[in-house]
Design a protein around this nucleic acid. Sequence first.
DNA 1: GGTACGATAGGCT
DNA 2: GCCTATCGTACCG
Length: 262
Amino acid sequence: MAERKRKQLSRNEKEKAKSKGGSDKCKQHVTTETRESRYFTCDQTHLQPHLGELFFRQPCVTLAKAFLGKVLVRRLDDGTELRGRVVETEAYLGGEDKASHSAGGKRTGRNTAMFMKPGTIYVYPIYGVYLCMNVSSEGDGAAVLLRSLEPLQGHAIMRQLRASKRKDKARPLKDKELCNGPSKLCQALDVQRRFDRQDMASDSEVWLEDTDSTTEVHEMVSAPRIGIQSHGEWAEKPLRFYLRGNTCVSVVNKEAERLCQT
DNA sequence: GGTACGATAGGCT
DNA sequence: GCCTATCGTACCG
């Protein structure tokens, strides 16, 4: 309950932050599809399609931070490519991390992907209805949860995919609402359970692209993770990372932003 | 517009 | 029985 209140509070703060600017990048990319395409055409020469094994072979926290700003690509069966910039992640360290599915080194059928080589995708169902996508990092049972994307390409299809899980007469989703949560991004990119244990470093349906932009330290916020309030001290550790001011972040934590100010 | 809250549903342990 | 969420609706200013 307290968590929910905190969430609500944070959402409010997110909206406020938006009006202060700093979200221009998001706006710039999110406004129209045409503009996004142009952005990508311009930058095409600087992109390194398919970040490989080397990228994922980093310690969990380092990888969770390194994900920020990278572009997640989903290629659908018909060849359509959906793109979103990663703006929010969480690190689940495995072993000692009590909030991790692999806490205590516990290995089950479900979490096997967490123990596989860095870059392995871990997709699991939650609350019976939703999916969450993680990527295995260096370290036994460690993985990075992808929490939010800033839609860059394929908005219409993302909206369609998201709408199919909602009521017919529900209000249309804003661009920033398409991927602003771990399960929302799975819906928007049509991430399926069968992706579990696939290798993001070599897969032809989901991969990560580099960009020429680097995330400055002051642009990144570290905050406690979401939805794990029952895990004691591990619930407090700042293992969630997001891009400051980006309107596509699912939950803004004002206190953490103050602490991260440099 | 925002905030608060209840309902939801299925797999895993 | 718990769970790394989300949605719709009711209420508030």
